[in-house]
Design a protein around this nucleic acid. Structure first.
Lengths: 343, 343
DNA sequence: TTGTAGGCGTTATCAG
DNA sequence: CTGATAACGCCTACAA
């Protein structure tokens, strides 16, 4: 193929291969080492050369090979983010997390876990990439998942509970949130309050516990409908309720998605909200603001995201620092799904 | 620290470092090469050794270093996925794409782009990872983004239009979708139909064009409300409508999110749906099924995702094959937001 | 089936 | 600021 007899190890062009720092160095007329320095933004190059290098890179279409960098680097600035794409509460936080990472010039790789908690493949990916740290967002984070990841790097769990020593946790006070919601309903005069519960995760378990506890404290009869924390789960829960002789006067759902599904199914059945039944959700996802205008327990996603990133950075900087559990109080946001009891 | 004077280059354990294939080989009592063969699932190792290697890896907590693999490998099985986390239509497709990738044992890395179309950083990430191919999901994919990525690898764009030669496209027929919706409204007797439009992306532009074209064909007066393709955009659009003397009898929104926001704001203002005004959306996101039960134009996300992955695989296998444009017909799904005209 | 040699593109560490 | 050199952990090819 090649017509020139003398072929140096690094012939120019190297057809078909992506350009390397070597190519940039040649194009800019500087050394490889300098190119590396420039791309890392480290001291040791003048403004003029920096500019020259960047222009040369631009000209030949060079892009840093992150695999090579990760392989060689002792300290990575890549953090993993495990999450479910379908959960709007989490995508909301994720967007803010990504912005927070960018501000600190950290790279973030997303390990998406499906409906079926296939968390293992996300863990494999993150461990494979040797991420410096990880943020685990969400519904039903398994203890085994955390264990696999946290043995090698700091992890912060957002929205879940109790993973033993060494794990940072950032979350809302689920118990308090439930109590606020129930106090509010009681204030409106409700005493027959059903709770739509999800079996997934510790946060959901705590919400359920808090409901039972509060009901017991107030000598009310607990009424737990076991279902799922999705719209479909809400619909199923509503079906269960509608099969009874009497509806409760109010319902509290484990989260907004569930509340929205339930409200939808109730409305379909001719039950008016809030005239016939009151509905309260949890999370305050964006959709809660539209349509039925769900009264719900608000979690501050900005705060959660920023705090999670801050916690992770702290642990990254000082791995021996103590793990912290930061818990924020949620608040009630009144919208249009709660009224006085029908009976 | 170390008590033994003689320290070989590869002391066992290598405290603090992640184990490598070398460590696995030692633990299993085989050669490095064999470990590599086992992890790639290539022929050349007996069942017994395979088992032994895997067990050894498990025991010492080994995980393949993907950076090293990517660096060395000539052919990567990593594909990039660029998308917006906040768009439910896209997260739906993304989940299916991820499942489709897993089936083919492909790795998928997500380049999340924020609300502000910071597509460049996603491109940088994907180029940095030297992904073999890329799938660009969605709203407002910039031509320059596609150009940067497609110069080095096959790209398939989902849901957007016209990026010139060499780009595979998988999408629904937006024009047809709009026409179906309008025909349906006309069939219900509507002649005053407003359209809520978004300025983002070519798909949105085509929907708008199709509306104008259809209205002209039917000698009706076009009534375009310029807004955004989000819930907030829908609210804003509704505000514009409500400021008029007369409402149109029906509205068609550029997508479901916009329709939902608009419907919510109209309801708040005391306008009944569908008694006072009919509303039709586009996309058929999951939320369209709950609450207002939006009548909308359905896009088959399973089909879109599967086809996109299939197209990409074809191009990966045979880079010289022609780029294809695959366009699926959307369908109307009747729910509860359309009735006969109020006037 | 096993072992060995070489190199992927980068960072890190030196000497100049 | 330059240039040389040694890793990083893995894959590829080839020899045993």
């Amino acid at each position: 193929m090649s017509e020139n007899g003398t072929t140096t190890a690094l012939a120019n062009g190297r057809a078909g291969r992506a350009p390397t720092m070597e190519d940039v160095a040649r194009e800019a007329g500087v050394s490889r080492a300098l190119v590396s320095i420039v791309f890392r933004g480290k001291p040791g190059a003048s403004e003029a050369t920096r500019k020259r290098v960047h222009e040369a890179a631009q000209r030949i279409g060079y892009e840093l090979n992150v695999a090579a960098r990760m392989l060689r680097e002792t300290e990575t600035n890549v953090v993993g983010l495990m999450m479910t794409l379908k959960n709007p509460f989490h995508t909301d936080i994720a967007e803010k997390l990504i912005a927070a990472a960018k501000e600190r010039s950290m790279e973030i790789i997303i390990g998406a876990v499906g409906q079926d908690s296939a968390q293992d493949s996300a863990v494999t990916m993150m461990r494979g990439f040797r991420v410096a740290g990880a943020i685990l967002l969400g519904t039903d984070v398994q203890a085994s998942t955390v264990a696999q990841l946290s043995s090698d790097r700091p992890c912060v769990v957002v929205g879940e509970h109790d993973f033993g020593q060494g794990i940072d946790i950032v979350r809302s006070d689920d118990r308090l949130g439930i109590r606020i919601a129930l106090d509010y309903l009681l204030g409106k005069g409700h005493t027959e309050i059903a709770y739509l519960s999800s079996p997934h995760g510790q946060a959901m378990a705590e919400r359920r516990e808090a409901y039972l506890e509060w009901m017991a404290e107030h000598s009310m009869e607990a009424d737990v409908v076991e279902t799922e924390d999705t719209e479909a789960g809400g619909v199923a829960g509503a079906g269960r309720l509608l099969g009874r002789k009497n509806l409760p006067t109010a319902t509290l759902a484990c989260n907004d998605r569930c509340a929205i599904g339930m409200a939808s199914a109730l409305t379909d059945a001719g039950v008016r909200i809030p005239e016939d039944i009151s509905v309260v959700g949890f999370d305050d996802i964006e959709q809660a603001r539209y349509g039925i205008k769900l009264t719900t327990i608000h979690q501050d996603t900005d705060l959660l995201a920023e705090t999670a990133m801050k916690s992770l950075m702290t642990r990254l900087r000082d791995p021996d620092s103590d793990a912290t559990s930061i818990i924020f109080p949620p608040t009630l946001v009144e919208r249009a799904t709660v009224g006085p009891p029908a009976r």
